[in-house]
């Protein structure tokens, strides 16, 4: 893309197999850099798994894909102690959660018990089994997906739990040109599986540490606060953005700026990440559900973005 920094290489690499909006790839990279997790709420078949695979392969890290079903147990996720009859001891066999990039596919299909096991691990960044704590690796990022149409829907993540995810994303259908390229080309999954790493794990960790150093002007902080205040004032929003949400917006803006190779935040960064970061942190008045509710939440934040004056 524009720069040949680590992030630029990363984005370019993913773009080889994920044919669609570059903005999506950039937001994935943002979540990675900001040490946040990603929730993709979208219909099936638009490349969520592909994205996860491509990201993991590009940063030289381990990748696990967990397909959530309704009979998945927490231990399947976290791991368990296994008795070794020879040694007569219990050995901890780590579950698939001990990877750098985890694609938790269709997280809504599993029981709330398993969901909470995952969410707690995301929170604590460690797993405690039988009294012993095992830290999760670094970098650690969960890309969870949900299907809002939910043909076989069971347990959509409750709104209160959604704020564990830094960014909620909708990929959307590709443009006709992109779709043509997708169906014309060879199997992109295989290609993704063969991608070379362009960023080492250390580099990735290093990038993550640089996020806090990205320059944020005071005017932009005021802008973020103004946005949050507006969500609390708007009539159609029952519960507005908390101060934690504002903080996360700032971090996400910094990470987003870093994906361009910039060490300073511009107002457009804040505007670009506002909907992915804030839309799932508010509760709207509407009684709508499903995809319509997601769309209404997004447009509520969108309206606020169009209303609040942005610094020049």
């Amino acid at each position: 893309m524009e720069n040949d920094s680590a992030v630029g290489r990363l984005v370019d690499n993913i773009r080889k197999v994920f044919i669609g909006e570059t903005e999506v790839i950039r937001l994935v990279a943002t979540a990675l850099l900001a040490r946040g997790h990603l929730l993709i709420e979208d219909v099936p078949g638009i490349g969520k798994t592909l994205l996860g695979i491509a990201l993991a392969r590009s940063i030289e890290s381990s990748f696990r894909r967990i397909q959530f079903t309704n009979d998945l147990l927490p231990s399947d996720l976290l791991g368990m102690s296994i008795y070794n009859p020879r040694d007569a001891t219990f050995a901890f066999k780590p579950g698939p959660i001990f990877s750098n990039v985890i694609l938790a596919d269709e997280i809504n299909r599993t029981t709330p018990k398993t969901q909470s096991a995952l969410l707690e691990a995301m929170n604590d960044l460690q797993v405690t089994i039988d009294g012993k704590s095992y830290p999760l690796p670094e970098p650690f990022m969960i890309i969870a997906t949900q299907n809002p149409i939910e043909y076989h829907g069971t347990f959509p993540l409750p709104e209160a739990q959604l704020d564990r995810f830094l960014i909620r994303l909708r990929i959307g259908y590709p443009s006709p040109e992109s779709e043509k390229e997708i169906i014309r080309g060879r199997d992109l999954y295989q290609q993704a599986g063969r991608l070379e790493a362009v960023v080492t794990g250390d580099e990735a960790v290093d990038l993550q540490s640089r996020v806090d150093g990205v320059r944020v002007d005071d005017a932009l902080l005021d802008y973020i606060i103004a946005l949050a205040a507006e969500t609390r004032k708007t009539k159609g929003i029952k519960l507005g953005v908390s101060p934690r949400g504002a903080l996360l917006l700032r971090r996400a803006a910094q990470a987003y700026a870093l994906t361009f190779g910039r060490d300073y935040v511009i107002p457009d960064d804040v505007k670009k990440v506002a909907i992915p970061v804030l839309a799932h942190r508010i509760v709207i008045e509407s009684q709508a559900y499903g995809l319509l509710r997601i769309l209404e939440s997004d447009s509520a934040i969108g309206d606020i973005l169009n209303k609040v004056p942005v610094p020049l």
Binding site: I266, P267, D268, K271, L305, V308, V310, L312
Partner: peptide, 9 residues
Amino acid sequence: RRPAETAAE
């Protein structure tokens, strides 16, 4: 320029 439009937009 509209007040909610950034310079780049």
